[in-house]
Amino acid sequence: MTQHKLDPIDQEIVQRLSHDARISNRSIAKEVGITEGTVRQRIKRLQKDGLIQFTVVTDSAWQALPIFA
């Protein structure tokens, strides 16, 4: 099994995504001091390597709302 190491930039990206998974790549880039393209590439790599994933969690109470009927 290959061990993955997150460098400091990856750690910064993951930290920001952990706080708010909807944060834009542009915002992350500005806060970390790298380009938006670099953020995008690193997130793709982290996903491909299985180090991060994005998941939707729903509240079952919402299913009772008329918009879901």
Rank of each mutant, 00 (worst) to 15 (best):
L51N: 12
Q15A: 11
A69G: 09
G50K: 09
D20E: 07
P8H: 14
Q47G: 01
V56S: 10
Q63H: 03
Q63K: 04
T2F: 10
R26F: 04
A29F: 08
R42P: 02
H19P: 01
G37N: 15
R26V: 07
G37T: 15
K5P: 01
T35E: 09
G33K: 02
F54T: 01
F54Q: 01
F54C: 02
I13F: 11
V39R: 08
Q63P: 00
L65W: 03
S27D: 15
K30A: 07
Q47W: 00
P66V: 05
E12S: 11
T38S: 14
D10Y: 10
T2H: 13
R40L: 14
P8R: 14
G33S: 07
I9D: 08
K44Q: 13
E31N: 08
P66N: 03
P66S: 04
T58E: 12
T38N: 13
I13A: 11
R45V: 00
F54R: 02
Q47K: 11
W62G: 00
S24V: 02
Q11D: 10
M1A: 15
I43V: 15
V39H: 10
K44S: 14
D49R: 14
S24T: 15
V14Q: 02
A21S: 14
F68L: 07
A61R: 09
Q41V: 04
Q63R: 10
S18G: 15
Q63Y: 06
